[in-house]
């Protein structure tokens, strides 16, 4: 099974990205220990020259890291026919103990990679490398997490055996199932539905506040992050039900299938993208005082807020469409 083209692509890219990040974090260690912009030493000038090249190369690697999350989900989805009992990616990921940890770590790394790309985007627009140390601190953390992810992913794919009987999504994401997924799936739609609309409205409110009064960056960031979690929980709790038109099927993976027009990919991409850009607004805010970024960061924050709103709005419209036109009606 490890010879599956998508698995080979994922493993190869993970090894390459891990290698690049380890070498970049070694360079980052030099930056964190020796960086001194007031010095004109040969080492300092060499670091200045190399950081630009390394940032550019790492940016491309992290773009692929983000893309690899979706390739991983698609691969898990594609492989589910090989396992007895699996109905979708949920079953594939449950084949061994590394599946879900890999997915969760990939999602975390995808978010952190997005935040790193935002920080890097701001940093290279400042003439005096204003975010260089936070950027490399985050890169070092990211290198460690991506390395763990690579090991977990390798372990997951290596231990995929076709004769394993796995669980189906119906049992994994049932409101009767004990555990985290069961608890989320059993959240009542009477609570989650108003909460979902309220969270979306609060994010829009915070965006308007920032655009009009230039304040509330942290508030927007926190609100958009909370909205991400509420929307993700809502997806399991009631949004899925409208897609499947089944009152008891809460699987977050079946919507990735052709039967549902691959809508799941769009839903997850918009939700995760909105969260990353929303977090970016708050992450950049402490650096507004930097002289070299005083014009760059406010403009970038506005763009990030617009991006968050567009992505969340798209998520909202996709789900609202199903809530209105689905044959299923949830009663209060």
């Amino acid at each position: 099974m490890i010879q599956h083209p998508a698995i080979l692509a994922l493993l190869t890219s993970s090894f390459i990205i891990s290698g690049m990040l380890i070498s970049a974090s070694w360079f980052g260690k030099q930056i964190l220990s020796s960086w001194d912009l007031s010095s004109g030493s040969e080492l300092q000038l060499a670091l200045e020259r190399r950081t630009y090249l390394i940032s550019t190369l790492i940016s491309y690697a992290l773009f692929f890291q983000i893309f690899s999350l979706f390739l991983f989900i698609h691969t898990a989805e594609d492989l589910h026919t090989s396992f007895t009992g699996a109905m979708c990616a949920a079953g594939t990921l449950a084949v061994n103990s590394s599946g879900y940890p890999t997915l969760i770590l990939k999602m975390l790394n995808c978010t952190l990679a997005g935040v790193w790309l935002i920080i890097n985007h701001a940093d290279i627009r400042g003439y005096d490398y204003p975010l260089i140390k936070p950027k490399y601190l985050l890169l070092n953390l990211l290198a460690l997490l991506i390395l763990i992810e690579t090991v977990l992913q390798f372990s997951f794919f290596l231990r995929l055996k076709g004769d394993v009987i796995t669980s189906c999504c119906g049992s994994l994401f049932s409101s009767d199932t004990a555990g985290f997924s069961g608890n989320i799936a059993s959240l009542p739609h009477t609570v989650m539905q108003p909460l979902f609309f309220a969270a979306m409205a609060a994010t829009i409110g915070c965006a308007v506040l920032f655009m009009r009064k230039r304040k509330g960056a942290y508030l927007f960031s926190i609100t958009s992050t909370v909205t991400f979690f509420i929307a993700a929980a809502s997806l399991l709790s009631f949004i899925c039900l409208y897609y499947y038109e089944l009152p008891s099927h809460h699987c977050p993976f079946c919507i990735l299938q052709q039967e549902y027009g691959f809508t799941g990919y769009l839903l997850y991409a918009t939700l995760l993208g909105g969260a990353v850009t929303g977090i970016g607004v708050g992450v950049l805010h402490p650096f507004t005082a930097c002289a070299s970024l005083k014009l760059v960061i406010p403009a970038l924050q506005r763009k990030l807020i617009v991006a968050t709103m567009v992505l969340y709005l798209l998520f909202f419209l996709l789900t609202a469409d199903r809530m209105i036109f689905s044959n299923l009606r949830l009663v209060y």
């Binding site: 912009l37 004109g40 630009y52 400042g126 003439y127 490398y129 070299s292």
Partner: peptide
């Protein structure tokens, strides 16, 4: 001329190529 606005003094050896 740098994008951060008009600066009085600027150390140029550390600047990336775009500046």
């Amino acid at each position: 001329d740098v994008p951060a606005g008009q600066l009085v003094d600027l150390e140029v050896t550390s600047l990336p190529e775009r500046f």
